[in-house]
């Protein structure tokens, strides 16, 4: 079955040949990948920019200045202002926090849940496997964006309804209203992790050390925990290298369509969409977030390539 994951040419169709080399070895191999190193440096700068930038550039991201609407870059506003006179630089930083953290948190959830279901599907009974795989097939039969478009209003509607548990509402408040977004992206991306993990488990369970553990009567949950899980770490790294850029793109995409974060909180997606309506008069409002988003995804993809090459050197050519 062809996978719908689209960010790279990762070996999703064939079982990943995991190389159980020691960590230093991986790092040495990674360092050899020049583009990966550049991407790592740029990505580090971007993360620092988003995380610590607002501490240095202390401007209110929601502060509107009616005397400075749609201004080009200047000393006061290094990247200019948007159509409400807000500083674009600070909005890029805060937008970066939003975009990156939504992607990261949703992928952590996706990996945790996907691993669990992948293990269950690959290493318990046939029925569980069938059911989980059918659910995954259905989710994957709908393009991720369409599914997300359908899910987000339901999730935000659920957050408004009376039966919502208090913790979800609190989490939504803490996350500045991005909780629904995180859950939505998680709900459609775990399937990919689960399939990768299941495939790997199917290979591992045939291996001697697992079979001998079964033979001496070690209970299944213990085998999963002690023998299967540790051997999944590499494939989970691969899943993360694919998942995070996908999360960034999904978040930006759904925010672009106006279903993501709520203004005035910026996201790179909403900033692009804001810029779209004024691109004839003030193209910088569109270009600034567009460039930063593209660089981020580019770096994440290059990093992913480098990491995959490091863990699976034979896949590189």
């Amino acid at each position: 079955m062809t996978d719908t994951i689209d960010v790279t040419t990762a070996p999703v169709d064939r079982p990943l040949r995991v190389d159980l080399a020691p960590r230093q070895m991986l790092w040495r191999r990674f360092r050899r990948h020049k583009a990966g190193m550049v991407a790592l440096i740029v990505m580090t700068v971007l993360v620092l920019f988003a995380v610590f930038g607002p501490l240095l550039w202390q401007v209110d991201y929601a502060l509107t200045d009616f005397n400075a609407i749609g201004e080009s870059p200047s000393a006061d506003h290094p990247l200019g202002t948007d159509s409400l006179g807000r500083d674009i630089l600070i909005r890029l930083m805060i937008g970066g926090r939003v975009s990156l953290s939504v992607a990261l948190i949703s992928q952590i959830l996706a990996i945790a849940f996907g691993t669990l279901l992948g293990l269950i599907a690959g290493y318990t009974n046939k029925h569980a496997d069938t059911w989980i795989m059918r659910v995954i097939d259905v989710i994957m039969a709908i393009p991720d964006l369409l599914l997300l478009i359908l899910l987000i209003p339901v999730l935000s509607g659920a957050l408004e309804s009376s039966w919502t548990p208090a913790w979800a509402v609190t989490l939504n408040d803490i996350s500045l209203g991005t909780f629904g977004l995180v859950v939505g992206i998680f709900l459609i991306t775990w399937t990919f992790v689960a399939r990768l993990v299941r495939g790997q488990v199917l290979t591992l369970r045939e291996m001697e050390f697992v079979e001998s553990a079964v033979n001496i009567g070690v209970p299944r949950p213990l085998i999963m925990y002690r023998h299967l899980l540790p051997n999944l770490s590499t494939i989970l790294v691969v899943a993360a290298t694919l998942g995070v850029p996908r999360g960034v793109l999904l978040e930006a995409g759904i925010s672009f369509l106006g279903l993501g974060v709520s203004p005035p909180l910026p996201s790179w997606g909403t900033m692009i969409s804001d810029g779209l309506s004024v691109m004839r008069s003030e193209p910088h409002i569109l270009l600034a977030p567009a460039i930063v988003l593209s660089i981020t995804v580019l770096c994440l993809n290059l990093l992913g390539d480098a990491i995959r090459d490091a863990v699976d050197p034979r896949s590189s050519t």
Partner: peptide, 22 residues
Amino acid sequence: VMFGISVPPYVITPVLVLVFAI
């Protein structure tokens, strides 16, 4: 190729419009 894979359609479309239509 990396560029093509990384740049989403909601970036490339407006940029193309900006450059080739405006």
